[in-house]
Nucleic acid binder design. Structure first.
Length: 420
RNA sequence: GUGGAUGUAGCUCAGCUGGUUAGAGUAUCAGGUUGUGGCCCUGAGGGUCGUCGGUUCGAACCCGAUCAUCCACCCCA
């Protein structure tokens, strides 16, 4: 038992009973994306390591300590995708989509890999529904993307979610803000916790997100990025808020949202649930106007979000949101006599070719056991075929929920007709 | 990477202060009239008590190490 092989730490199997739920969620997500004019994009699971170093940012935790990186047999440094945005941006540039119809709007459902220490809502392989837009710098697009997130959550029945938004400005206004923030924090250097002390030089904005009580208190009095926005960023952020208000989306401005990926500019947002433990962010994203250029493409504004499907599932389960029932087989044909075996096999095969879902016993079990199996799998009808049916040339289709029986000829056409 | 909790049948768990062949419920399979499910009854299979080592006459129970899982920090979806 101890020598059996388990799934690697932080990964999970999705068994058939659970897979049905995944299919449902994916269907809702796809439908929602389509309604907003987003088309699916697929991209490789592996990328050149450099893509994430340049795209996500060399100093981020994700790149510094969480990537599954290895050298392939050709000596190239390859990385298992830790997030989707960089891949989409790469693909957008590589295929010259900037020369096509803009804005380019796409979505994906794909696994991401990060070498994390697992806990509730945090895995080493997790699946993300992501959405990206290139080619619009208008605040309407921000509102549309946030509106898309709001819509799919609502369609999934997830309503008690808090929407936090913030603006972290553009490189111009952020420089000013950083200076002000550093000045404020430097005066309180002695009180900061160890990790925050090291963040002071590298990325002072992260201190605003520290969980330590002392740092929280210090952060509470810190200058806010929103107060340092340049005119352009301020107008943009105000417009986003107006749109959201007009759309009836409840949000709160949270000056402490600091996303951990370097590419974000201007609008950033998080959808947070309080039902699933410490890792409550169910959807997070923002604008990244500099990313495409950073990756060697044209000047091209962009924005998007990622949403963890495992976390969505956790929220839905914690709220007791029901999932649609699995569609069972239409007919189970039981075999009561070895002499009928081949007839049963020909029948199920013919019916399946005609598009009728049906099953038979393949474990040589008793009639009673076959009935139990049909019952447990939820088969709508059961037909028993034995010596009597073979000689009389007709069978009975038993409705398993009512017990009623329909009589029909012992052939696929009659059965198909009777089942309609 | 740091900290805390937990590891007994497929699943949920019991196992009194260490004492002989480790239990229950559930699930699985088979029977309960010879060809008909859901309820009920009977029976069967299934565990080297995470692993290794130590203490002891004797350990699932005590000690140590290790591995795994879970939760929190960090970070993020």
């Amino acid at each position: 038992m101890a020598v059996t092989i388990q799934a690697p730490k932080g990964t999970h199997d999705v068994l058939p009973a659970e897979a049905v739920k995944w299919q449902y969620i994916e269907k809702v997500l796809r439908g929602c994306a389509a309604d907003f004019g987003f088309r699916e994009i697929r991209f490789p699971t592996i990328e050149h390591t450099e893509l994430f170093q340049r795209g996500v940012g060399d100093t981020t935790d994700v790149v510094q300590k969480e990537m599954y990186t290895f050298e392939d047999k050709g000596g190239r440094s390859i990385t298992l995708r830790p997030e989707g945005t960089a891949s989409v941006a790469r693909s957008f540039i590589e295929h010259g989509l900037a020369g096509g119809t803009l804005p380019f709007k796409c979505f994906y459902i794909a696994p991401n890999f990060r070498y994390e220490k697992p806990q509730a809502g945090r895995l080493r392989e997790h699946h993300q529904f992501g959405v990206e837009v290139f080619g619009s710098k208008s605040p309407v697009q921000d509102a549309e993307v946030i509106g898309l997130a709001d819509t799919f959550l609502s369609r999934l029945g997830i309503h008690n979610i808090r929407v936090h938004i913030n603006s972290i400005g553009c490189p111009v206004c952020r420089r000013e803000y950083h200076a002000a923030l550093k000045e404020y924090l430097s005066e309180r250097k002695d009180e900061l916790c160890g990790t925050c002390l090291s963040r002071l030089e590298k990325n002072p904005m992260r201190i605003l997100d520290c969980k330590s009580d002392i740092c929280k208190a210090i952060a509470a009095g810190a200058p806010h990025c929103v107060d340092y926005l340049c005119d352009e960023c301020r107008v943009h952020f105000n417009a986003v808020q107006s749109y959201l208000t007009a759309m009836g989306i409840d949000f709160e401005i949270d000056p402490n949202i600091v996303r951990g990926l370097d590419y974000y500019t201007k609008t950033v947002f998080e959808f947070v649930s309080e039902n699933i433990g410490a890792q409550g962010t169910v959807c997070g994203g923002g604008r990244y106007d500099g990313l495409v250029r950073e990756l060697g493409g044209p000047d091209m504004p962009g924005l998007g979000f990622g949403s963890g499907i495992e976390r969505l599932m956790m929220v839905m389960d914690s709220l007791g949101i029901p999932f649609p029932e699995e569609e069972p087989v239409k007919l189970f044909i039981a075999c009561a006599d070895a002499a009928a075996d081949e007839t049963v096999q020909v029948l199920v095969h013919t019916l399946r070719k005609a598009g009728i879902a049906c099953e038979r016993d393949t474990a040589a079990r008793s009639l009673k056991a076959q009935m139990k199996y049909a019952d447990k799998t939820g088969a709508r009808y059961v037909a028993v075929i034995g010596g009597n049916e073979l000689s009389e040339g007709h069978i009975e289709l038993k409705n398993m929920s009512t017990g009623d029986k329909i009589s029909c000829g012992l052939n696929a056409d009659d059965i198909a007709a009777a089942l309609n």
